[in-house]
């Protein structure tokens, strides 16, 4: 089941929350939706789930348009929204039954389906409690259970791990990974490690526009370009070492680190590596190379670069 977003625009008043974006999510793909607060992630997701209608453009889920066949689209989608609103005065089992009925699951299958969801989402001990009595983590599981109960082909998760403890985060990530093998998942987050750990593809949006699209490695490669090394050298004077390094022609920039004697951050020229040269230089001068760490561009940096003006 694929999702096709075509020239989607949403205006709130005169403000364009989402500005003419188009993308596709292929079947079986886990797409990570990244962006700073207010970038338009949630608006886009609400539009895919037919809660908000687009100002312009169209979204198709499995070939059905959200404009002309919203009820068909809604049936295909399991949605966990950002605040995870739930009926707090309903017991967990009653709530799951209500959602199952709404999703049109056959009466004789409902019991089994609820039992499965309770097991998958780890709600066994809490199933008779009212939702209002549950902790945040368990409520999140109820939210997941209601999103998955009708076995939808498309899953939309808006910040699914907000407010959970590290164990629960790991559990939910594993769950999303295993679901993602057979289903199309769109997941929004501003935790970059999470997106990297769970998603096949990353889409970064800022101010309502797509600013990057690709796998984590793609994005990294694109942003990195040059080799950056941190080195420490012992056995010589700071100044001598600095001068010696300056002689190496593959190096473009040297930056002494203020905290440590004889430590430098070195940027090489485009497409060149300075590692060998640095090593031979040390051997020639009789110095000891005590540290040489390649500095990888982190996803955080890419994110900052793309979304800070």
């Amino acid at each position: 089941m694929d999702i096709i977003v075509e020239n989607f625009t949403k205006k709130y008043g005169s403000q364009r929350a989402v500005d003419n974006i188009s993308f596709q999510v292929r079947p079986g793909e886990v797409l990570g939706f990244l962006g700073p607060n207010g970038a338009g992630k949630t608006t886009t997701m609400k539009a895919i789930t037919c809660f908000l209608a687009p100002t312009e453009g169209d979204i198709k889920v499995g070939g059905h348009s959200i404009l002309s066949a919203p009820e068909k689209v809604k049936k295909l989608i399991g949605y966990l929204s950002e605040q995870n609103p739930l009926y707090l005065d309903m017991p967990v089992l009653d709530y799951l039954k209500f959602v199952a009925e709404m999703q049109g699951i056959k009466k004789e299958k409902i019991r089994n389906r609820i039992r499965e969801m309770v097991i998958i989402c780890g709600l066994e001990g809490e199933k008779h409690k009212k939702i209002g009595e549950l902790s945040k983590g368990y409520r999140q599981r109820v939210g997941l259970a209601q999103a998955l109960i009708h076995d939808p082909d498309v899953l939309i998760f808006d910040e699914p791990t907000v407010g959970l403890d590290p164990n629960q985060i790991a559990e939910i990530r594993t769950l999303i990974r295993s679901i993602g093998r057979s289903k199309t998942v769109v997941l929004s987050s501003h935790i970059l490690a999470e997106v990297e750990a769970t998603c096949d593809r990353i889409l970064i949006i800022n101010k309502g526009k797509i600013v990057a699209d690709g796998t984590a490695d793609d994005l990294r490669k694109r942003a990195q370009g040059r080799e950056v090394l941190r080195i420490s050298i012992e056995g010589g004077e700071q100044n001598d070492i600095f001068q010696a390094i300056r002689q190496i022609e593959t190096i473009e920039m040297i930056d002494p680190l203020p905290m440590k004697q004889c430590s430098f951050e070195i940027q090489s020229r485009e497409n060149l590596s300075s590692r060998r040269n640095l090593f031979t230089m040390c051997v020639e001068k009789g110095w000891f190379l005590t540290e040489m760490t390649p500095i990888e561009t982190k996803l955080e940096d890419i994110f900052r670069e793309l979304t800070v003006n």
């Binding site: 789930t49 809660f51 809604k74 929204s81 609103p85 739930l86 009926y87």
Partner: peptide, 14 residues
């Protein structure tokens, strides 16, 4: 107020 309306309206109902 609680936002459950979103949950309700994203189910297959009009």
């Amino acid at each position: 107020k609680t936002g459950t309306i979103e949950l309700l309206l994203t189910k297959p109902v009009n």
